[in-house]
Amino acid sequence: MQVVVLLAGVVDPKWRLGTLGLRPGTAQVEDTALPRKLSPFDEAALETALQLRDADAAVTVTAILTGGAESDGLLRAVAAFRPHRAFRFGDAAMSLWDPATAARLLGAAVRAATEAPALVLMGREFGDSDDGVLAPALAEAEGWAFCGLAHRVALRDGDILLHRTRGARDEILHRRPPAVVSITNERGNRLRHPLMKNVMLARRAPVEVVAPPTAPPPALALRAIAAVPPAQRGGAGRVLTGPVAAQVEELAAYLRASTTGAA
């Protein structure tokens, strides 16, 4: 059974974005100088794939990281988890801002891994530009089944069994392959640590790169991007000082006033 995990990476959220903008004359974001890491959802998707491999010798896992050469370090970090195959898909010019184009590119990436994917896993958000559109867009573009925001995945008798939470209900879903599943973080899919031996091996191994097909002009064009300061909020910004007991009393009074005010 072929499991493909698509990974995008994000700019390290601890790093200042500074003068984020477009490369002059292009619709490409200039963020290649910023350090990249896997997002929590990339990690959850990767861990899910590794668990499926560990549970079933018939599962073959291919990990695909999108991006240009700036992502090679990250690809090596992924390879250290020893999926059956790991490659980078894309180049510095590849853009995933237009979902229809992105779905076509991701479909090509999956096909570069296998002609018969059973399960495609990706994070609930794919990289820094996506807010959850790309996974369902890929499923629709390929005519594959879809389940969004699963936190646990199992394979049973050729079926895909998925757990997810929607509001106040927990759902267990069944999907027939091929399916795209987007993963959200949970305790059970926190990414394991790689073996140091494998980290060293991956560091020396060559990086496999698959070039993306030429994309048609996007229907949705990125015109501008800029870092924005945190949204303004009305808070008074009053920070209490003095003995903690007195602070707690003040907080209790504040809460009493707020809750009676609301009643």
Partner: peptide, 10 residues
């Protein structure tokens, strides 16, 4: 985009 730290115009 970028975790709410940037805004894109499309």
């Amino acid at each position: 985009s970028h975790g709410g730290r940037a805004e894109a115009r499309l």
